[in-house]
């Protein structure tokens, strides 16, 4: 993961935004677990790296946070999508699809040949 931090940063942010979009407000731990599960446990997420990414998204105004109480009655900080965040998910998802599509074209012939 450390060898490709740029890709990781971008994709992690998109995963966070997308997860928040589908599931609504979540705390950091919940987010981390959810991302792990969604990836089919293919992604061994170092939970600590999530927080700087969350902070960055919050600074950019795509998510906001407030303190609340978790399902197990623990005080936790909940993150939710802002309007700008919602738009950002759409844009970033579209970009990501384009990128993967382009990459797929590059990779496909090699497999066929």
């Amino acid at each position: 993961m450390n060898e490709k931090p740029d890709v990781w940063q971008g994709t992690l942010a998109l995963m966070v935004l997308r997860t928040l979009e589908t599931l609504g407000p979540l705390h950091g731990y919940g987010l981390a677990r959810r991302i792990e599960q969604t990836s089919g446990n293919l992604l061994q997420l170092n939970y600590g790296t999530l927080y700087p990414a969350l902070l960055k998204l919050e600074q950019e105004g795509f998510i906001r946070s407030r303190w609340g109480v978790s399902e197990n009655n623990r005080r936790a900080k909940f993150y939710e999508l802002t309007k700008a965040g919602g738009r950002q998910v759409k844009n970033a998802a579209k970009e990501w699809e384009q990128t993967t599509a382009i990459l797929a074209r590059f990779l496909a012939p090699a497999e066929e040949a």
Binding site: N72, R75, A76, K77
Partner: peptide
């Protein structure tokens, strides 16, 4: 504040 957030994270994971 972040220390508190981390503490709650660790607590939930421990649970």
């Amino acid at each position: 504040e972040f220390a508190a957030e981390l503490a709650s994270h660790v607590a939930m994971d421990t649970d």
